[in-house]
């Protein structure tokens, strides 16, 4: 592993450690949902359906060993 890669990983770990320590100091966060106030058993799904709209198929050539560089293939349709 080259030195620069060790340094990058080190810096990421350092950032995570300090980030966790800083987040401990921040506890005043908004509560954007009202899940605590749902009346028990009040949730009813009365309508559910699904309509198939269509489909699209893309194909890409597989890598042939290491020798040949891959070609990007165009999409093909199978409606």
């Amino acid at each position: 592993m080259p030195f620069w890669l060790c340094l990058v990983i080190g810096a990421v770990v350092g950032g995570i450690v300090v980030g966790i320590m800083l987040s401990q100091l921040h506890t005043v966060r908004p509560n954007n949902a009202a899940a605590d106030y749902v009346i028990r058993d009040s949730f009813r799904v009365t309508m559910q359906d699904e309509t198939f709209l269509g489909k699209t198929t893309n194909r890409t050539p597989r890598m042939q060993q290491q020798q040949q560089p891959p070609h990007q293939g165009g999409p093909s349709q199978h409606p």
Partner: peptide
């Protein structure tokens, strides 16, 4: 080929 088929639903 590798194929990826995406079906869309409402």
């Amino acid at each position: 080929f590798d194929y990826v088929e995406t079906s869309t639903f409402a």
